[in-house]
């Protein structure tokens, strides 16, 4: 069950809207907008794949998102999943 801390870089003027949208996405917990256009978030998934899909859907699916940048990935109980 990997968990990742990520920084989501947005266009400055759309940061608030991105935050609102992110809060509707399952397996995403947000921690506010910081330094103008970074949203701190935690992504949860069953496998690294689900983290990947989640971050792709954020990048491609939410207008105003420039990129998703992991800062920490914990795979403590990932091994069981192969």
């Amino acid at each position: 069950m990997p968990i990742a801390g990520v920084l989501i870089l947005t266009n400055i003027e759309e940061a608030q809207e991105v935050l609102v949208n992110l809060n509707t996405v399952e397996n995403v917990t947000t921690y506010g907008i910081h330094k103008q256009n970074y949203i701190i978030a935690v992504l949860e998934g069953d496998t690294p794949k689900s983290l990947e899909i989640l971050s792709q859907s954020i990048t491609n699916g939410i207008s105003g998102v420039i990129g998703v940048y992991p800062t920490y990935v914990n795979y403590e109980d990932d091994e069981a999943e192969g």
Binding site: L7, A41, V42, Y69, T71, Y72
Partner: peptide
């Protein structure tokens, strides 16, 4: 772990 993950992201922008 979630708290750690959020803290790590925050640290990445000096927050």
């Amino acid at each position: 772990i979630k708290t750690s993950a959020a803290a790590s992201a925050a640290a990445g922008i000096g927050v």
